[in-house]
Amino acid sequence: MKYFSSKLSIFALILLAGFFTLTSQGCGKKGCMDPDSLNYDPDATKDDGSCEFNPEIMAHFHSHFGADALTYNQNYTLSSGRKVNLSLAQFYVSGMKLTDGGSGYSFDDTYLLVKGDQTVYELGSADPGQYTGFTFDVGVDSAANHSDPSTYETSSALSPQSPSMHWSWSSGYIFIKIEGMADTSAAGNGAVDYPFELHVGMDAMLRNVSLSQALDATLNNEVEIGMVIDWSQFFNGIDMTTPFTTHTMDNMPVAMKVADNVSSAITLE
């Protein structure tokens, strides 16, 4: 009984306190009531729809193989006439920045794992502005490249992934991972029977992509940057009549080609 009454007394006190706070603020102040907004008014008691938010930036990466949309495990013919299919195609993106004449807007500490079967990626909000382009690196910048994957939140692209995007024996990320089957016969007879792996990493393999496009990032808007990845471009210059698998260290020439093909593989939509 005693316990019960003490509970009651606390309840009464809270009610009383609440009453005073409410009345002391005055009634019906209009304003923006969303604490995540730029103009949040803590005194507002009635939302008047005036909330302002920074523009949200979205990157759309449309995966193609030549002229077709990419489907995993489907045979495609390269311009050389050679057949190939992909079972996995993904790369890291870091150092993303919206450019303008000045310092632009950098998405610091934002990393994407761009996958052949996913198109839409949220970069987060940016300062409003008239931007003239979008630039980023394919791969992971050297500071993060040598960091410990187990220190990242599970939601981060840099945390351990399945399939793995990290070389544990050299403590670095796999920047680009493309796997599938290819026809390696000298004549290109159409037998897609060679399982290949293109695993490209190491600091020196980081490649910049700079795209020019007017991006009008105004308050309360969502800005979409549309891009195309033509995965067939990654095979440019690789002699596919030899076993061309690379894990970078064991086949540097092929790894280098794959990295250098980044610029022709990624274009504006």
Binding site: D148, S150, P160, S164, H166, S168, S170
Partner: peptide, 24 residues
């Protein structure tokens, strides 16, 4: 190739000829 004891743990777990399991 591995700078810390913490990072080293990732290696045998992932190695196909050692424990062969994806860390995730």
């Amino acid at each position: 190739g591995v700078p810390t004891l913490e990072l080293q743990v990732l290696a045998p777990v992932a190695a196909e000829v050692e424990m062969g399991i994806n860390f995730k």
